[in-house]
């Protein structure tokens, strides 16, 4: 009886060993395959140079500079702005670009919504995080900024696996945007845009310390590399402007003064309202609006 029990135990143990061994082999092959892909993708990325097409001036920021500054009207300029981009991501982009390129001017979007706290949730919010991680899985300094920026770790892992572990990908530079010309004009989005930029579940958002901190870091990195920095804000619709919380406007004005003291050119046209036909929506310019704005910016820059 005891012998039978012992035999059955040994048999069961052998089966268990076989099960665990097979499972480990299965997972080992999987991890090796994934690990090799990460290595190959990392090498591909390290050997890629951001295609700036010999441009010496770059326009960076979110959808505002993306739609309001037409690089064709400016000398040797490329627009690399991407929708919803927070300053944290612009800073990472810039660091990466400067490692392999030489530029002399940075035109950066600087509008009241850029310093709103809604930017702090870009790596956490389901709506934005996936896209933000897609742009930054190799360039993001997530470990260093762990205590400063809240981010969805699970989503970051998902995006990282999808982009680096499954097969070799020829392009890992997902952080370069372009000028976006919009021909339509539709002002019906006013409420949703104001809500998105300045409110969270109907509670007014404050000033983002992280955004201000990273804006200053961008200025620092420009100074360090002898890059002239120009800050711009395109006109928004009067009805949109009226709904921007006072607290944000106040901090925005303070920052403008601070930058003016540092001799930084700030081309703020937020409250220089255009005709309705020149807006793509309540806070973005359409193609015609961008032509006017780019020309005004060029003139003001020359006069500066």
């Amino acid at each position: 009886m005891v012998g039978n029990h012992k035999n059955s135990f040994i048999f069961s143990f052998k089966k268990m060993k076989k099960f665990i061994l097979n499972l480990l082999i299965f997972l080992f092959i999987l991890f090796i395959y994934m690990g090799l892909n990460v290595l190959v993708n990392f090498i591909i990325w390290k050997n890629q140079k951001p295609p700036l097409k010999e441009a010496t001036t770059i326009i960076a920021g979110d959808s505002h500079p993306m739609t309001s500054l037409n690089p064709k009207l400016l000398y040797n300029t490329i627009n690399i702005s991407q929708g919803a981009e927070p300053y944290v991501l612009t800073y990472w982009k810039l660091k990466e670009i400067l490692m392999l390129n030489k530029i002399d001017t940075l035109i950066l979007g600087f509008a009241p919504h850029n310093i709103s706290e809604f930017n702090d949730k870009k790596f956490l919010n389901k709506f934005y995080s996936n896209e933000m991680f897609k742009r930054s899985y190799f360039i993001g300094e997530f470990i260093e900024t762990n205590n400063l920026i809240e981010f969805d770790k699970k989503e970051l892992i998902n995006v990282f696996i999808r982009n680096t572990c499954l097969f070799p990908k020829l392009n890992h530079i997902n952080y370069l945007g372009n000028y976006d010309s919009i021909n339509e004009s539709n002002l019906s989005n006013l409420h949703s845009d104001v809500k998105r930029h300045y409110y969270d579940k109907n509670i007014k958002l404050g000033v983002s310390k992280i955004s201000v901190k990273y804006l200053n870091r961008i200025i620092q990195i420009c100074n360090k590399n002898n890059i002239e920095i120009l800050l711009i804000s395109n006109p928004v619709h009067l009805n949109y402007y009226k709904k921007i919380p006072k607290m944000i406007i106040k901090e925005y004005d303070n920052l403008k003064k601070e930058f003016a003291n540092k001799k930084i050119f700030v081309f703020d046209r937020t409250d220089f309202f255009y005709d309705d036909s020149l807006y793509a929506n309540s806070d973005h310019l359409n193609y015609n609006g961008s032509i006017i704005f780019t020309k005004q910016f060029k003139k003001a820059k020359n006069d500066f």
């Binding site: 389901k126 996936n130 699970k154 989503e155 998902n158 999808r162 572990c165 499954l166």
Partner: peptide
């Protein structure tokens, strides 16, 4: 199957 879970997996 594992590959498709990683590749096609939707937002959790």
């Amino acid at each position: 199957l594992m590959f498709s879970i990683f590749w096609f997996g939707g937002k959790s």
